[in-house]
Design a protein around this nucleic acid. Structure first.
Lengths: 147, 147
DNA sequence: TATTGACTTAAAGTTAACTTTAACTTCTAT
DNA sequence: ATAGAAGTTAAAGTTAACTTTAAGTCAATA
């Protein structure tokens, strides 16, 4: 099965101009064209584009994704390098998840803070609570917000 | 306790120019100055700047964080609005975490894929595995990468 | 066959969040 | 008292990842 740029863009939920941009940046060296110059996307391209999307979601830049695509084009001799790349992406993701969890902890604290303030009608109440008056799981987080 | 812009920047691990930018964008309407015009940061400003950082980490834009700061400046009458804002941030974060988990699932699949390819010396082996030959937790993910 | 929608390119424009620069002033330490 | 570090502003520059525009070609349908 093959697709035009518009059809593939719809499958991936991106703009056609995004795919043209990726092509221009060298992310799609496997692209084929009709005689008249129109891009032909294959089923197998869908998976690669999904991986490009995944790598972007790990925080990788276009120019680095291009390097990965170059490894893919080299074939089996680059298996090791590609494995190492994904292991690094995994480590990076774990850091991002930990960061996001810290952010979530702070947001949860603020939800508790404003719920407490709402009940009391003033932020003075949560502001003036001593450490042992506030929920145990809020103590560490509040401490981080103070200097 | 008070701090200069450079001292506060160091505490927060940001550039002084970032704090000046925030001030210019209206994120720090509570800023005080010396007679000669030098910004004076207080201990209480640290917490607000930490919250600004937290809101940024949830994906909020500077102009929307400014709106939040405006709510803070309004005092107790905006408690409800602020609670709702943090509830929305929490929902947004939950979506981000789910997205990040999907990305992690894909990265884990690719790690398995290249480990399998490495053992075999070729990506043909994982490529040609039937669904029941691959680890159960990899099946759904591989299916998503195919069209 | 003619219209219309989708394709093509190169080049310019957009956006957000800073960062840098230049020209200047103020504070700290010897 | 003076050097140098750090503060000030306004304005311009940076960066990444697209998006838009303009001018044109191609493909499908009535």
């Amino acid at each position: 099965m093959t697709y035009t740029i518009g059809e593939m863009a719809k499958l991936l939920d991106v703009a056609p101009s995004t795919l043209r941009y990726y092509d221009k940046e060298g992310l799609l060296p496997f692209m084929e064209r009709t005689e008249s110059g129109i891009r032909i996307f294959k089923d197998s391209d869908y998976g690669i584009l999904k991986i490009i999307h995944c790598l972007k979601a790990t925080g990788m830049q276009i120019k680095d994704i291009k390097e990965f695509i170059n490894l893919v084009m080299q074939g089996d001799e680059s298996i090791d390098a590609r494995l190492e790349l994904f292991k690094k992406r995994k480590a990076e993701l774990e850091k991002q998840m930990a960061d996001l969890q810290e952010t979530m902890d702070t947001v949860n604290f603020k939800c508790w803070y404003y719920e407490t303030a709402k009940k009391a009608g003033t932020t003075d109440v949560p502001d003036n609570m001593t450490d042992d008056e506030l929920p145990e799981d809020m103590r560490k987080i509040r401490a981080k917000l103070r200097k």
